[in-house]
């Protein structure tokens, strides 16, 4: 088996998987506050955006495919639509090629870009899948909600990073 030197990917892919698992479960929940419904369907896109830099790319792709499919199963949306969206975002943003660890401004810019891309993809793939134009106001509302939640998720990630030792080596 040929070996090549690289920074260890061991122990970082599971973190991305765990984050995606939690975000997928939260994405299926529905909250109603003061008469306003709060749907978090776009929340897992944060997981794709903040995917660990030094993760194993093939394993990451498989995990993204599985979690995308799981969300489709749970939300009864066209099968494969989330997997396609996650894979396209992963291909465009390539977290494994990121040189530096995220700072807040950079992460926010990434996040807004990813949300806009996933909104466009959701609209057109949903249209193709259901042969009916999706309700764009619902899409936009969910996208804005996901953007508003970003600082919270980033904060939780930051706390998690601080709690973990040797973050530089682990590449999170």
């Amino acid at each position: 088996m040929a070996l090549s030197p690289i920074v260890s990917s061991k122990g970082t892919t599971w973190r991305g998987g765990l984050t995606m698992c939690l975000l997928t479960l939260f994405a299926t929940l529905h909250i109603n506050l003061f008469g306003q419904s709060v749907a978090l369907t776009f929340l897992p896109v944060i997981g794709v955006c903040l995917w660990p830099r030094f993760s194993n790319p093939p394993a990451s792709i498989v995990l993204l495919f599985i979690f995308g499919l799981l969300l489709d199963f749970l939300t009864f949306e066209p099968l494969g639509i989330r997997s396609l969206i996650y894979l396209i975002i992963f291909t465009v943003f390539r977290p494994d090629l990121r040189l530096k660890s995220f700072r807040f401004n950079m992460a926010l810019a990434y996040w807004i870009g990813a949300i806009l891309l996933s909104l466009i993809l959701s609209y057109f793939l949903g249209w193709l899948g259901r042969s009916v134009k999706p309700e764009w106001t619902a899409l936009l509302y969910q996208g804005l909600l996901a953007m508003a939640l970003f600082p919270l998720i980033y904060g939780i990630r930051h706390i998690f990073k601080t709690l973990m030792k040797d973050v530089g080596l682990r590449g999170f």
């Binding site: 088996m1 070996l3 090549s4 030197p5 093939p58 792709i61 498989v62 894979l87 291909t91």
Partner: peptide, 23 residues
């Protein structure tokens, strides 16, 4: 530290293509 062939760019591309095709 090292990585195996399973972690190579070629493997990444193949996995990505397969995942896209399956989706």
């Amino acid at each position: 530290m090292y990585r195996s062939e399973l972690n190579s760019p070629r493997a990444t591309h193949i996995t990505l293509l397969l995942a896209f095709a399956l989706s």
